[in-house]
Amino acid sequence: MPNIASALKDEITRLARKELRASTDTLKKAVATYRSEIAALKRRVDQLERQQKRTTKVVARAVPAEQPRDDGQLRWRASGFAQHRKRLGLSAHEAGTLLGVSPLTVYKWESGQARPRAQYLPAIAQFRSLGKREAARRLEELAA
């Protein structure tokens, strides 16, 4: 017959293992879930990076890169044009009237969807040199 101390020790060990197994099973399940989520996120990141590379290539082909010019030719920057128009307090329609183009053309220039043709660059350079009063005066002249 086993002695009471060894029986008590065996029972305590069995119960401790049972409790540890119960607590570690939930942790094992959580770890497995986290690993699968991490793997899914890695796949998603890879997919988005590939998509971004394809989009960059398409945009690079669609909009030609601006070439630096050192020979005194006129330069174009869509954001600068939009800022100046807003600084003058002009609508796209009014700016288009001053430049001899449609308001839609002005919007496309400002959004970067299109670049002005070379024939409009001198007019745009002159537009960039206008102040508020001069722009208002020219608009009145064109309206009359």
Rank of each mutant, 00 (worst) to 15 (best):
E94L: 05
L130D: 04
R44G: 00
A143R: 15
L88Y: 02
L15F: 01
D46Q: 10
V45F: 03
D70W: 15
V106A: 01
P122L: 01
P103M: 08
P122G: 04
S129P: 02
F81H: 05
T24E: 12
T13Q: 09
D71V: 01
K132L: 08
N3D: 14
Y120A: 02
R85K: 09
T97S: 11
L98Y: 03
S111E: 05
Y120V: 00
E11T: 06
E141D: 12
W76G: 01
K9H: 03
A40F: 00
K29E: 11
L15Q: 03
T33L: 08
Q119M: 13
L8K: 15
L8P: 01
A65Y: 08
R115F: 01
A40R: 02
R61T: 10
V45I: 13
R44Q: 12
L139R: 04
R128D: 12
E19C: 06
K108D: 07
S102W: 05
E140K: 15
P2W: 07
F127Y: 08
D25Y: 13
I12S: 05
G80H: 10
Q51Y: 07
K132V: 10
A135M: 01
S79I: 14
A95I: 02
D70V: 12
K57F: 09
G72E: 04
A143S: 14
S6W: 09
K53V: 10
Q119K: 13
A114V: 03
R17K: 11
A135L: 03
D10V: 00
E19H: 09
R50A: 14
F127K: 03
V59K: 08
G72H: 05
A22V: 08
R35V: 07
L90N: 00
Q126P: 05
A82E: 07
D71W: 04
F81P: 04
H84G: 02
S79D: 14
L98W: 02
A30W: 07
F127S: 00
A39G: 03
G131P: 06
W76A: 00
I4D: 15
I12E: 03
E37R: 03
Q126W: 15
G100M: 03
L74C: 01
A144K: 15
T26G: 11
S111M: 05
A118V: 12
A30R: 14
L99Q: 03
L8E: 15
E94T: 07
V45Y: 04
G80Q: 14
A95C: 11
A82Q: 08
Y107H: 13
R128H: 12
A60E: 15
R61D: 11
A95E: 01
R50Q: 15
R14S: 01
R128S: 09
Q113W: 06
A95G: 07
A62W: 03
R69F: 00
S36F: 03
L27W: 10
A82M: 09
K9A: 00
E37V: 00
T24K: 10
